[in-house]
Every structure is written in C-alpha cells, then in structure tokens.
C-alpha cells in the first residue's frame, strides 16, 4: 500500500478541499489530530489543503482565533471562513473584513450543525453577499431520510434551490449529498446547475460511484476532499487512484479543479 500511495503523491498535484482542523468533544480522537494530519499531508505530498476549523463551527470568536492560529501551522493550509447564521452579524463582519485576503479560499456553511435551513431568513444576507462577490461556498449536504433529524437542514435539493437563485455563487455540495439513493439523485442537481460542484469527503467511498459521476457530468466539478480527521486521507487517495476513470480525470479530481476554483498557483 505504501508504494501505491507513494506513486500517487509523485504523480499528481493533490489539493484537499475539505478537511477540518481542531478536535471535537464527541469525536473522541486520541492523540494530536492536527499534528497527525499535518504529518500525513507532508508524507503524501499535499500541495494545499483548505480547512474549516471545528472550533469555528462550534464557536464564533474562539473559532476565528483558532482558524488564524491554524493558518500559522503550515503555509499549505488555506481556510474557509465559517458563516454561522445564528450569529449572522459576526459572520458578515468576518466576511467583509477577510474575503479576498490571501489564504481565505471561500466560505463554509453547515446548515445541519447550525440547525438552519438554507432558505431561512438568517442566511439571506449571506447568500446575497456571496452572490455579489462571486464566492465559493462549501456546504455540508446530506440526505434527510436518516435517523439524525438535523440532516434535514442540509438537503442538497434545498441547497440547489439557492444555487439556482444565486448563479454567481459556486456551491460545493459536500459528501456527494449524503447516502444511498441521494448520491445518485444529486447527479440530477449537478447536471442542471453548472455552478454546483461536489466532493466525496468522509466515508462515502462506494465502488463505482466515481466512475458513474464522471460518466454523467465529467470530472471538472468533482473535488478531492477527505473530511480529515473524520476520514483518513489514505482511503481517499487509494479510492480515486483505483477508480476506472481516465488519467486526465484523476488529475482534475486530485488537484486541478481545486487549483482553478480557488485560484491557487
């Protein structure tokens, strides 16, 4: 396995567009997850990694401090600014002060975490701002028909309605929209909306899924995302490398798409 991973890192430019730094009480991660991730990034030759800090999802001011602190850990790290609609004034201030600055690549939203539907009034000024400023927005997305009731807030079809209304936003649907049949329903969304991208961050590494997506929409709107520390990068590297898609598609997914989208050099 080590050899396969070594070949991947030598062959491709790799940009992780969806990971997290920091810990979370309910994750129960042992050791030093940030340190472990940075070591993995180094070992497997990641060119860039765009993160949202767990603390920034769970807290505004403290989360912002941790985001800034994390950027100092490695020059390959770029950050999403987290917008929490429950503390909208703070979020808008962060955007206005920081969007456009180097190493802030876009905005992360998490409707399930923050328990707020995308069309809720609390998000409205954010969508308008993102549209006016042509922002890249990474949103958690998941199918609503699961035991966790909070996933209903991140239904990819609700997010698609937003992307249709605000065409200058580039919206990334994280996790391919969730589980089961939704992974394929999301393909219809992607076919209809050219401003929507997708990643398969997390434990969504189904055999054949990547091939089906590339067949249906091509490879230019599929991003490499791991969701570390929730999911180890090694699974993702091997999943993409082992998929039966063309070499050029692998290059797009591993890094070229993110490089273009986030304007990385």
């Amino acid at each position: 396995m080590e050899q396969r991973l070594k070949k991947i890192m030598e062959k491709y430019q790799i940009i992780d567009s969806h990971l997290h730094l920091g810990v979370l009480g309910y994750m129960n991660i042992l050791g030093d997850p940030d340190g472990s991730m940075l070591k993995l990034m180094e070992k497997y030759g990641l060119d860039y990694a765009v993160f949202s800090h767990h603390a920034a999802l769970a807290s505004t001011t403290f989360g912002w401090e941790k985001t800034i602190e994390a950027l100092g850990k490695d020059s390959k790290l770029y950050a999403y600014i987290v917008f929490n609609p429950n503390h909208g004034d703070f979020g808008m201030k962060l955007l206005e002060e920081n969007i456009g600055k180097e190493r802030f690549s876009g905005v992360k939203i998490h409707p399930s975490w923050h328990r707020c539907y995308p069309a809720d009034a609390r998000y409205k000024r954010f969508w308008e701002y993102a549209h006016q400023n042509k922002l890249v927005v990474l949103s958690h997305s998941w199918n609503p028909d699961v035991a966790n009731p909070d996933q209903k807030y991140s239904d990819p079809f609700l997010l698609a309605d937003i992307a249709k209304k605000y065409r200058d936003i580039t919206l990334i649907l994280a996790h391919g929209g969730g589980r089961g049949a939704y992974l394929y329903k999301v393909l219809d969304i992607l076919k209809e909306n050219k401003n929507i991208y997708v990643d398969f961050a997390g434990d969504i590494l189904l055999p054949g899924l990547l091939e089906d997506y590339v067949d249906a929409i091509g490879s230019k709107r599929i991003l490499f995302g791991t969701d570390m520390p929730w999911s180890d990068i090694r699974y993702h590297l091997l999943w993409i490398e082992g998929s039966e898609i063309d070499e050029k598609d692998k290059r797009n997914i591993f890094g070229l798409n993110a490089k273009r989208l986030f304007k990385l050099t």
């Binding site: 810990v23 009480g25 603390a55 807290s59």
Partner: peptide, 11 residues
C-alpha cells in the same frame, strides 16, 4: 462553559 460541551471538554 459552553466551549467544553460544544467544542472540546479539555480546552
């Protein structure tokens, strides 16, 4: 402290 619950107990 809320941070202990919502982020990380130790911190």
């Amino acid at each position: 402290h809320h941070l202990s619950l919502f982020y990380w107990p130790r911190q």
